[in-house]
């Protein structure tokens, strides 16, 4: 009995911290979502009103659309770029470590720094340095230069900056997945006369499927919860780049904590549902093509 108590005492500090800063806030969010609560006055139970407000709010769904738009770019452009670079680095022996470091620098940098830096690049005088437009002019594409963050293009620009910042994560995960595929499989295939395309479609992609699923799920979770970089880059830009977490943050800033909590829960449920759906689809694909579960 004493031994058990001694052993338990080792995990008590972690348990206390975890309970105070994770478990309690998690359950408190549920309570808040059913209250009208400005965090100062006595809270009032209002049932499902906050959820009704979330589901009928055009602003909320518009932010979900913006988040979805950026996520779509991240799922396609960002992940294809990451996979392409991972395949290239996996094959290139020389300078492999150098490329790994270079591609991984961006995700390591602060989101705020990236946002402010890109703002300087994209916005012209008096606020920015207009680097991107100068670059276009210098290569004879001056006709493409314009106010990148001041027009409806701002949503696409934000998506591209997000992908540029985030592809390093996917790159590292893809590279790790590629390096776990046994080389003998490729050697055997080549002996049987398989070309590069066949090796890629019949060996690389099926065996990489668990990693692809992981990257897809992490991309969805990460992008739908993007916040700091977008805040620093555009601040919302007339709602065109207002993403769900920005809406939640804004409601918290105005002390509408109940509504913010309900929005957080709705977003959480949607993301969990999407993640499980992705894992389910991935499992079905692997079963269909006879690949063992990863």
């Amino acid at each position: 009995m004493k031994d058990k108590a001694v052993n338990f005492s080792f995990i008590v500090p972690a348990l206390v911290i975890f309970t105070l800063f994770w478990i309690y806030p998690f359950f408190y969010t549920f309570i808040l979502a059913f209250q009208e609560n400005d965090l100062i006055s006595a809270p009032k139970f209002i049932g499902l009103s906050n959820f009704r407000l979330v589901f009928t709010s055009g602003d909320w769904w518009s932010s979900m659309y913006n988040g979805g738009f950026i996520t779509l770019w991240a799922l396609t452009f960002q992940n294809i770029l990451a996979l392409t670079l991972a395949l290239a680095v996996d094959r290139v022996i020389r300078l492999r470590k150098f490329y790994k470091v270079v591609f991984f620098i961006l995700p390591v940098l602060s989101e705020i720094i990236i946002g402010l830096l890109m703002k300087q690049f994209l916005v012209s005088e008096p606020v920015g340095r207009d680097v991107f437009n100068h670059l276009l002019n210098s290569v004879g594409l001056g006709f493409l230069a314009h106010d990148w963050l001041g027009t409806a293009h701002v949503r696409m620009i934000t998506a591209i900056v997000h992908c540029w910042k985030g592809f390093g994560w996917a790159f590292i995960i893809f590279l790790a997945g590629l390096q776990s595929i046994p080389e003998q499989l490729y050697e055997a295939a080549r002996i049987d006369g398989a070309g590069a395309w066949h090796c890629f479609t019949k060996i690389t992609m099926p065996l990489l499927m668990p990693v692809v699923t992981l990257v897809v799920v992490l991309t969805i979770l990460g992008t739908m919860q993007a916040f700091a970089m977008i805040l620093a880059l555009t601040g919302g830009a007339g709602g065109l780049t207002t993403v769900p977490v920005m809406v939640i943050y804004d409601h918290l800033r105005h002390n509408i904590a109940g509504l913010a909590a309900a929005e957080g829960l709705v977003l959480g449920v949607i993301l969990v549902a999407v993640s499980f759906t992705m894992f389910f689809i991935s499992k079905k694909i692997r079963e269909k093509y006879g690949v063992l579960p990863g």
Partner: peptide
């Protein structure tokens, strides 16, 4: 000014 819709007050003051 260009980018005024995303300009912060600090940037405008500067």
């Amino acid at each position: 000014a260009s980018g005024i819709a995303t300009m912060t007050n600090k940037e405008a003051e500067d």
